[in-house]
Computed example of a mutant assay.
Amino acid sequence: MSSASSPGQPSDDDDPVLDQIGPALSRLRRRAPASNKDLSRNLVLNVIADAADEMTVGGLAAEMGVVQPVASRTVAACIADGLLRRVASQADGRRTVLELTKPGEAERHRFAAEQRAAFEEITAAWTQEERVQFARLLVRYGLDAAAWSRGR
Score class of each variant (00 low, 15 high):
Met1Phe: 08
Met1Val: 13
Asp12His: 10
Asp14His: 06
Asp14Ile: 01
Leu18Ala: 10
Gln20Phe: 00
Ala24Gln: 04
Leu28Glu: 05
Arg29His: 11
Arg29Trp: 09
Arg31Cys: 10
Ala32Phe: 03
Pro33Phe: 08
Ser35Pro: 01
Asp38Arg: 06
Asn46Pro: 03
Ala52Ile: 10
Met55Tyr: 02
Thr56Ala: 05
Val57Ile: 15
Ala61Glu: 13
Ala62Trp: 03
Ala62Leu: 08
Met64Asn: 01
Gln68Val: 15
Ala71Pro: 00
Arg73Met: 06
Arg73Ser: 09
Ala80Tyr: 02
Ala80His: 08
Ala80Val: 02
Asp81Thr: 09
Leu83Val: 02
Arg86Cys: 06
Arg86Ser: 13
Asp92Phe: 00
Asp92Glu: 09
Gly93Val: 06
Arg94Ile: 00
Thr96Arg: 05
Thr96Gly: 01
Leu98Phe: 07
Leu100Met: 07
Gly104Lys: 00
Gly104Asn: 05
Glu105Tyr: 11
Arg108Cys: 01
His109Met: 15
Phe111Gly: 03
Ala112Tyr: 04
Gln115Thr: 05
Arg116Val: 14
Ala118Asn: 08
Ile122Asp: 13
Glu129Tyr: 12
Glu130Ala: 10
Val132Trp: 01
Gln133Leu: 09
Val139Glu: 12
Arg140Ser: 14
Trp148Phe: 08
Ser149Thr: 10
Arg150Cys: 00
